[in-house]
Design a protein around this nucleic acid. Structure first.
Lengths: 129, 129
DNA sequence: CCTTGACCTTCCCGTGACTGGAACCCCCAT
DNA sequence: ATGGGGGTTCCAGTCACGGGAAGGTCAAGG
């Protein structure tokens, strides 16, 4: 399979697939004309990567997860640790965003949103304390 | 005031303050020796920027908000729109992260996390559907 | 007067995970 | 022969800074 076919099968842009090769996540073969030739195994890995990225794992995590996936003697504890650490990061982000949302929505509620210049949002951003 | 004083007053790293000058958010004066000299007005703007950034506004938004702040004839509706658009982005991010969190925590719960290789997390990432 | 050390300056590179675009090659159909 | 739709590499840009090098400046102490 050529990169275009793989892109439509996996849903990943061709650019991303090339990037994943660049950074060593996959190693497709090459045809005589220089085109990448993808085997089932490569496509499978790319689907794996797409799912892991969709769950927000970093590329570094993906590398680790792929290695664990290919290691038949892995301990599931190792996988679980990667996932739990990532979950902790996500929860921090959620908490940060929730705090922003709360502050923002209060400010928005307090703002008349009319033609007058008085604005609690700007007042808050420029408050002297 | 020199940049170091401003940094400790505003809580912003000196690097960030220089960056904000580079991109035209502030325009501090210069002393004869080339040092930046910050007036109250600059410090005030930097505090404003720090707060806006802490609420997750992009630099572009900050530029807009600063302009509105300095425009005595603004309409609060314009400010409110910037804030509401940003809030919408935040809510999208929160929803995405919540979805990740839910999926991840289910997978984590399902994973024994012991010495055996069997792992529902990897199974899910590599599933054939 | 000289040195030391804490400031300050500019400049350039690196981050993460791609994305866009230029310039070029390859293959098949008309 | 030509046109179009693949493919290839490489370079630059994104966002909001942070790290670090190389060097100028200033106040205090010996």
């Amino acid at each position: 399979m050529n990169i275009g076919d793989v892109a439509s099968q996996t849903g990943l842009p061709a650019k991303t697939i090339r990037y994943y090769e660049d950074i060593g996540l996959i190693r497709p073969m090459r045809d005589d004309n220089g085109y990448r030739r993808f085997r089932e195994q490569d496509v499978h890995k790319l689907i794996f990567l797409g799912r892991a990225r969709a769950l927000g794992f970093t590329i570094g995590d993906c590398r680790t997860l792929l290695a664990l996936y290919e290691d038949e003697t892995r301990a599931s504890a190792d996988v679980k640790k990667v996932a739990r650490d990532h979950l902790a990061q996500i929860e921090i982000k959620i908490a940060d965003l929730n705090a922003m949302r709360d502050t923002l929505s209060h400010l928005i509620d307090a703002c008349a949103g009319d033609n007058r210049p008085d604005c609690p949002i700007l007042s808050d951003l420029s408050r002297k304390s």
